[in-house]
Design a binder for these strands. Structure first.
Lengths: 223, 223
DNA sequence: TTTTTATTAAGTATAAACACGTATATTTTT
DNA sequence: AAAAATATACGTGTTTATACTTAATAAAAA
């Protein structure tokens, strides 16, 4: 579909979805510096809804978006974009290089994932790959994914299963320094129920204890 | 010292210290958009050491810096800048609007603090205020500071005490899901010592438990 | 309709964290 | 030199979390 001719200066329409203007401007500068490869025409949206409206109105070649967004998570936005633009090429962007985080975006259908401190050269690589129909992980991420899939094959399946609503609710409360007892009272259930939720969270997120739960919640941008 | 004449188009030499190129570029765009007020000449450094060298070589009117930096914390860099440039005006920058975070930078001698999603207009306000010799907190931060100082007056003093190196070391390990026992072994001290450190951390950071410690560590950008 | 998933709950036991004391040698600050 | 802060350490006791298990019910998916 989108065959690239490297010798032709092609126009690439890019939509950047990010709530921080600073990041959007930064990306703008970076993409402008890649003008030897293509002429990037940039469009911006500062949240998921805005992005969806713009995608609906205009055909973009590439969407670059942050995971951390108010209201909707990055993965949710991807699901909604792909519902009516199944061929849309989406590049995820994040500060954190953690597995559940990336998993959820890739599972949703993102074509690649890079960290925000990416160098222009690698960004060009990522964009080329994705526009060419491929999938791109930035190197640090690729390493982590590899290590993860390696020795914990069985558990990855479990990790793909997204947390249930109740679990997310409990996880948030845990991160808010509440004890199982307090959470139970707030949710009108038995303390043992929260014990179970907590245990299941630990298993699903492959962490060892409360500290790990909080870190995972953060990387899943639930906080 | 630095009297501002609002009618003269003044040249303001700004040094941006941030490890993310994207943020530096974003700031660049934002400051360029404020050219009605002054002509900003921008210089960049991508870490604390680099910044210190540049400050040593050239006199800047303003330093804008991120708290989250590899190796040295923002507060540490501020201390070192002010050691040989006590009059330097420093504006802190961050993603998180939390108290211990801001406290440590302000205590170190920053003249103001804004969040990264600041609007250009407010940024101009901040810069004007600081160059004029004042202190600027962005509005969300100011509210938080006020609430905090209000009902927890006694505790603020304690909070001002920055964490010791050892405590930071322990806090990082806690966030890495290590138990007190494991930390003790790694540091070649008794488990009871780590118990104490953990307790002191809880008291200093005004949190209730492990979850709170991890959140605090995150907001202090120790992770 | 059968099967899976989500949510709830509990038994039993151990491990870890939390809270409040005290204490001492060392370093830093005043 | 005196005072304060730091890093270290231990005692005692209570509260929470962790680990492994089973299981009932309702809702959703196959």
């Amino acid at each position: 579909m989108d065959e690239i001719k490297y010798k032709t200066k092609r126009v690439v329409n890019v939509l950047i979805i990010d709530d921080h203007k600073m990041i959007r401007d930064g990306l703008k500068v970076m993409l402008a510096s890649l003008n030897k490869y293509a002429q990037f025409k940039l469009y911006q949206a500062e949240n998921g809804e805005d992005g969806l409206i713009k995608i609906n109105r205009k055909g973009f070649d590439l969407v670059i978006m942050d995971y951390q967004m108010p209201c909707m998570s990055g993965a949710d936005i991807i699901y909604r974009i792909l519902r009516f633009k199944p061929e849309m090429k989406i590049l995820g962007l994040s500060n954190y290089d953690e597995i559940p985080y990336i998993q959820s975006m890739m599972d949703a259908g993102a074509k690649g994932f890079v960290l925000k401190n990416i160098e222009p050269a690698e960004m060009l690589n990522a964009i080329k790959t994705i526009l060419g129909g491929g999938i791109y992980y930035c190197s640090e991420v690729a390493v982590k994914l590899f290590n993860f899939a390696d020795d914990k094959n069985a558990k990855v399946v479990q990790c793909n299963k997204i947390l249930t609503n109740r679990e997310i609710e409990v996880l948030r409360m845990i991160a808010m320094e509440m004890t199982n007892d307090e959470i139970a009272q707030k949710l009108f259930v038995a303390k043992r129920t929260i014990d179970t939720h907590r245990q299941n969270l630990i298993n699903k997120l492959h962490v060892k204890n409360t500290a790990g739960l909080v870190m995972a919640a953060l990387k899943l941008s639930l906080l």
